[in-house]
Nucleic acid binder design. Sequence first.
DNA 1: CGTGATTTTGAAGCATTTCAACTCTGGTGG
DNA 2: CCACCAGAGTTGAAATGCTTCAAAATCACG
Lengths: 262, 262
Amino acid sequence: MLNPAAISSHTAHPVHAACMPLRMTSSDPFELLKAHVSVNRRVVREGDRVHQVGQPLEWLHVIHSGSFKTVNLAPDGREQVVGLHLKGDWLGFDGIARGQHTCDAVAMDIGEVWSVSYAALLQASTRVPALAALLHAAMSREMTRERNAMMTLCTLPATARVAEFLRVWVESMSERGLRTDLITLRMTRAEIGKYLGLTLETVSRAFSQLARANVIDFPEKGRRHLSITDPDALSRFVQRSQTDKEDLPRAACVANEPCMVH
Amino acid sequence: MLNPAAISSHTAHPVHAACMPLRMTSSDPFELLKAHVSVNRRVVREGDRVHQVGQPLEWLHVIHSGSFKTVNLAPDGREQVVGLHLKGDWLGFDGIARGQHTCDAVAMDIGEVWSVSYAALLQASTRVPALAALLHAAMSREMTRERNAMMTLCTLPATARVAEFLRVWVESMSERGLRTDLITLRMTRAEIGKYLGLTLETVSRAFSQLARANVIDFPEKGRRHLSITDPDALSRFVQRSQTDKEDLPRAACVANEPCMVH
DNA sequence: CGTGATTTTGAAGCATTTCAACTCTGGTGG
DNA sequence: CCACCAGAGTTGAAATGCTTCAAAATCACG
C-alpha cells in the first residue's frame, strides 16, 4: 500500500527540486538535527512515557531506536492504540496545534529518543530549510500512514486486518534495514486488538488461521516470535479477502472529468 | 486571546510563547497567506478534484469556503473516505513526504480554495515564522483529527459512530461560527458509510434510531436536512453506548510512575 | 409525470464478540 | 525441586450486531 520497494521513503526527501535550493550536506535526519539544534538523548525502558495527554508541548522527539506506541484516551474511558512508531519516526506532533499533547507515547521496549525543543527547532528551521523540509516530510508521512490505517480498519475483515498489520510491520522493518524473516511481537494479543479494533480472541484466531494457511509460522513454542514464510503471501491474503467478495466484473470506473488545478 | 468564543481554535495559535518571537500582525491564516505568498484563488463545483492520487505535489490548498472530502484508493480497489474538511483546513499535506499525492481531494459542493506553491510557501516560511507555525498547527490538527476518527471507528458501535460523526460535524460548524441547529448533509448514506466503515443500510437505520430517540429530527420530508434537537444528547448517546457495556466499577487506573522527560 | 437514484425497512445470513474452559509459560515461594 | 499462581494465548459454543439480499417508498431531474 505504501510503496512498492522503497528504502528511500524514510530519509528526508527533496520534495520538489525547486524546494531545496541548498546543498544537501546530509540526508540523514539524525546528522541534520545534531548539526543544527541542541539534542537531548535519552534512553527509555518498556512502559516509559515519552509524553502524556495534557502535558504542555515543549519537546519533539525522534526515535533513534526501539519501538513505541501512541495511545488515545477518550474522556469516557475508551482507549485505543492509534499508532506504532520506529526509528526515524517523530513523536509529539499531536501537541503542536493546541500547545499540549493529546495522546500518550509509550515505549514498547528499550530504546533511545532524541528530544529537541520545539521552539528551538522552529527557529532553526528558518535558518536551515532542510530542517523544515524534514519536519514536513515526517508529518506528512505520519498522516499518510494514519489514513492507510483507517482504510485497513474500515475495509478489511478481521484476518486480513491482522495480515495487513504484519505486512506493514515487515515493510517498516525492511525500510530500516532490519531483519524481516523472524520478527518479535512486542505487543500482546489484546494490544494488537486495541490497535486493529478487534478482540484479543479474534486476533488469536487470525494468527492461527494465518499459520494454518502457511502464511506465517511460529518457530518457537512461545507465540511472541513469528516468521514470515512468504512475505508476498501476506499481500495476497489481503487482496484475496477483497476479490472474494466481489466476484463481479465491477463496472469500469468512469472518470467524471477530473478537473485539475491549472 | 483576541476572540472570546470558539473561533480562535481555528486560527494560528501561538503554540508556545517562546515559539513566537514576532509580532502577530494577524492571527487570520488567510490574511497571513495573502501578505506573504502568491495565492491563486479558485472556485470549485461539486465533484471537482483539488488534487489526485499520483499527481506530483506542487500546490497546497487552503479551503476558503465549501466542504471537501479526501478519498483513499487501495491498489486492490478498496476505497474509503478518510477525511472531511471545511474552511481553514488545508488540502495536500499527504503529498509532501513522497512528492506526490496519495489521495484524492474532492469538493462536495460549491467552494473556493486558495492554492499556494509549496516551494514558495517553504521559502516564505523561513522569512515569516508565523507561516511555519501556521503550517505546523494545521498539520498537527489534521493528525489529531485523524486519530480521533480512528478511535471512533474502532471503539464505537454503528449508531454511536453515526452520532459521533454528527457531533464532530456540528462541532466543526460551531467552531467556524456557522449555524448548528439545522445542518445539511452533503453526503449520501453510502458516502457516510464509506467514511464510518458501515453499509448504507446501517447508516440509514442509525439515523432512524437517532430520530426515534429524539436526538435528531428531519424537519423537511427530504432526509438531507436534519436538525440537532439537543446537541448534548448526541454526546450522551455516544457515552451511553460505552457505559452500557461496562456496568462494572472499573478499577482505578494505577499510575505506573509516569516517567517524564526531564 | 416518468425514470433513476436515494432512502427506508424487513428478514436471513454471517462475522465478530462474548462467555467460558483450558493450555502454556515464567516466576515465586514453600 | 516442584507446587502453585498469574498472565498470555488458544479454542469452542452461544449470542449479538452488522451485512447482505430484497422490496417498497420517496426524492430529484429532465
